[in-house]
Amino acid sequence: MGPLIIDSTTPPLVAALPQERSRIDTHSAKIAAITEAPSDAEQTTKDALIEPLQRINDVMRPRGLEFDISEHSSRIITRVIDRETGDVIRQIPAEELLQMAERLEELQGKLISLQA
C-alpha cells in the first residue's frame, strides 16, 4: 500500500465532525442507560433465569459444570469444578475480570456525570 495522497479534492476531516459529535452523543446516552440501576424488566429477566439455571445445574453438576448469575452485573458465570474435591478448577469469566468490569462501569458513571 502506497502513501496517502491528499489534494484539493480530498474532503476535509472537519466536515465530518458534526456527524461524529452526534454519534458520540448517541453512544453516551446508551452508556448512561446501561449504567443506571437495573429496571424492573431486567430484574424480571434475571428472576426468570434462576429456575432454568437450577435445572441446568442439576444435570451438569455431576459432570463438573456449574452455572450462576453474577449479583452485580447479571452476567452468567460458568465454573468447572473438580467432582472429587469440589474445588473450582476454572471460572469463566474469571473473578478478577468481573471485578475489573465492575470498576470500569463505576468509572463510566463518573465520567458521564462529569461531562454532563
Rank of each mutant, 00 (worst) to 15 (best):
54 Q>S: 11
52 P>R: 11
82 D>W: 12
113 S>G: 02
15 A>T: 14
85 T>N: 06
6 I>L: 15
31 I>Q: 05
19 Q>G: 14
70 S>I: 04
96 E>S: 15
42 E>K: 09
65 L>I: 08
71 E>M: 06
112 I>W: 04
80 V>A: 14
30 K>D: 07
13 L>D: 14
64 G>P: 02
1 M>K: 05
105 E>Q: 13
79 R>D: 11
29 A>M: 06
50 I>T: 13
55 R>S: 07
87 D>F: 05
56 I>D: 06
44 T>N: 10
1 M>I: 03
61 R>I: 11
94 A>D: 09
34 I>Q: 07
79 R>E: 07
77 I>W: 02
89 I>P: 00
110 K>D: 08
80 V>N: 04
85 T>P: 11
13 L>C: 12
42 E>H: 11
4 L>M: 04
54 Q>F: 04
4 L>F: 06
16 A>G: 12
72 H>N: 11
24 I>R: 00
90 R>S: 03
40 D>I: 08
17 L>F: 09
24 I>P: 00
92 I>S: 06
78 T>N: 00
36 E>F: 12
101 A>V: 13
12 P>A: 13
3 P>I: 06
31 I>Y: 02
68 D>P: 01
17 L>A: 09
105 E>A: 15
17 L>D: 02
22 S>F: 05
99 Q>S: 10
53 L>T: 03
42 E>D: 15
84 E>W: 02
11 P>G: 11
24 I>Y: 01
107 L>E: 07
25 D>R: 15
4 L>Q: 05
36 E>H: 11
18 P>C: 04
57 N>T: 12
64 G>H: 08
54 Q>V: 00
27 H>E: 11
41 A>S: 05
86 G>P: 10
7 D>S: 13
111 L>A: 14
34 I>S: 01
98 L>R: 07
89 I>Y: 01
61 R>Y: 09
27 H>P: 00
61 R>V: 14
77 I>R: 04
102 E>A: 15
53 L>V: 10
42 E>G: 02
55 R>N: 03
98 L>A: 07
113 S>W: 00
28 S>M: 08
83 R>P: 08
43 Q>P: 00
93 P>R: 10
44 T>D: 15
82 D>E: 07
56 I>G: 01
63 R>H: 04
2 G>T: 03
21 R>D: 06
53 L>I: 15
1 M>N: 05
25 D>Y: 10
107 L>C: 03
115 Q>G: 04
115 Q>D: 09
12 P>R: 11
52 P>M: 11
